[in-house]
């Protein structure tokens, strides 16, 4: 399967996780990590699964590297019907009210443009005991399994 791991990062933690997900999946799939800052919405492709990894910054806002992407989405208003994505959020429950605000915004941008979200939005808590990858690897496997059916139908 063609997979792109799109990451929105501020501290680099989401970038590291995206690279780890690539390493985890690359034995069985064609997969690459791409910074959202370097990704144009016109590149979205119904034959590719998008695994999005995104943190939150400041007061529940998108991280720096996801902001240019949000601006491009607003300007281009692409029709993403048939595009499938899953989304994994990285946050910190020390900041309760705005926990995972960034990924929520990103998921909303995608679905508003017609894309289909696979699975639930998962939220890792940096102040919790679990490692992000321990949540993210099973999540990625689940989404890939769901996409096997979904992308098949779309093709």
């Amino acid at each position: 399967m063609n997979i792109q791991v799109l990451y929105g990062t501020e501290t680099g933690n989401a970038e590291m996780l995206a690279e780890d997900i690539v390493a985890e999946l690359e034995a069985d799939h064609t997969v690459a990590a791409v910074n959202l800052a370097d990704f144009d919405p016109s590149e979205f492709d119904t034959g590719t699964l998008y695994l999005m990894v995104c943190s939150t910054y400041g007061d529940g806002e998108l991280p720096a590297s996801a902001q240019p992407f949000a601006e491009k989405m607003a300007a281009a208003k692409p029709d993403l019907t048939g595009v499938h994505f899953g989304i994994f959020g990285m946050g910190d429950r020390e900041y309760d009210e705005t926990f995972n605000g960034g990924p929520a915004t990103l998921a909303a941008l995608m679905t508003a443009a017609g894309a289909t979200q696979l699975g639930e939005r998962i939220a890792h808590d940096a102040s919790g005991a679990e490692m992000a990858e321990d949540l993210a690897f099973p999540w990625a496997e689940d989404i890939v399994a769901m996409a096997g059916d979904a992308l098949g139908q779309a093709a």
């Binding site: 501290t11 933690n13 910190d92 020390e94 940096a126 102040s127």
Partner: peptide, 12 residues
């Protein structure tokens, strides 16, 4: 000391 999430950057 109570911002352990911020300290998670040391994993990088």
């Amino acid at each position: 000391a109570d911002h352990q999430g911020t300290k998670g950057v040391t994993r990088q």
